[in-house]
Design a binder for these strands. Structure first.
Lengths: 176, 176
DNA sequence: CACGTTTACCTGTCCGAACAAGTAAATCAC
DNA sequence: GTGATTTACTTGTTCGGACAGGTAAACGTG
């Protein structure tokens, strides 16, 4: 590192360089992406604050909700359900196990796999988690009518679907 | 609390071919929160793939975009602009510095502060980053009219504002 | 059955995110 | 001016997220 051109780090790019495109400037070069990013960070922070009080970290509650809903599952299933990562799941499950919320049992039909099941103790958490998510929902959609909430949900799902489809079609992310 | 809509918590998901939508539905404990979570993860994953090719990690590009747009700024300013965390910013800036994309200069008016400024070398990145964000924007909002994009942006901002305000008012996150 | 491939999981590593705690300087109160 | 508070930043720690690499078991085909 090192080379610096101490001057002119400030201000507009100046006429010397190409004036770039008619891009609506930084705040405009991706307002939706920007908004997604910021909203997600805030939402995660909020969820984290609420979840911490009940002994969970953001991300763990999704695993528990799936287990409560579907019963024992293999890690690979959880990975697919959450669209997550196998390595992350390994550690998340381990922490949930250490916290006493899940148990691992060897899968009788596959010696490679483990069945992850919620413990009896974890069921006390379920209500707390659902309360937290309701709270998050109420906070996020404060002041929105039912129609607006539905519209917001549709908007989010539409953006998600766009990304899902783009991820599925190689041309969208094709590299040289 | 109370999440209603006992049925169809998972609305129209467009092309039914996508089986990757988790549908945690279950207790209906927060469709919007869930949608935010999933959208954010996908978006982040997508952004990460694109950004990695140009030598950045997700999150760093936002810092750079603000610096390119606004010029040298203090870390605290960046924290406020990005709604981020001071500790995270310290490390992000350090990595950007080590990568040669920013420089730190002591603030002449405040001995506690540093001014972070983009290096000349970083400006080659600007085009790449803007290209990536345009790509992300196009992918995310594929099939949306200008009006729909604007509406989507408003929706995201409204959700964000709700969270911001809730974070500011103690009663929202008050504990029992 | 042997052999290559896929699947399930784990570890190492790097990064962002967030809380806690600490240092130092600026600012406010008196 | 002295002292308390606020602000700017740093470090330590823990966790989710993602990529790379590795082991072992299941699977597929010849």
């Amino acid at each position: 590192m090192a080379q610096d051109t101490p001057e002119a780090a400030e201000g507009p790019v100046g006429p010397g360089q190409q004036a770039t495109v008619p891009v609506p400037t930084a705040a405009g070069s991706g307002p939706i992406s920007h908004a997604i990013f910021r909203l997600a960070r805030l939402h995660r922070m909020f969820a984290g604050q609420l979840l911490r009080r009940i002994g969970l970290h953001p991300g763990q509650e999704l695993v528990m909700m799936h287990l409560w809903e579907l019963g024992a599952r293999r890690q690979a299933d959880l990975v697919r359900l959450l669209d997550s990562d196998a390595a992350t799941m390994t550690r998340t499950v381990r922490r949930l196990e250490q916290a006493g919320f899940v148990r691992r049992r060897p899968d009788p039909t596959d010696k490679r796999a483990s069945l992850i099941e919620p413990t009896a103790a974890s069921h006390a958490l379920r209500r707390e988690v659902e309360r937290v998510w309701s709270q998050l929902e109420d906070i996020s959609t404060a002041g929105l009518s039912d129609e607006e909430r539905a519209a917001a949900l549709l908007t989010l799902e539409r953006l998600e679907q766009n990304l899902v489809q783009a991820a599925a079609s190689p041309d969208a992310v094709a590299e040289p």
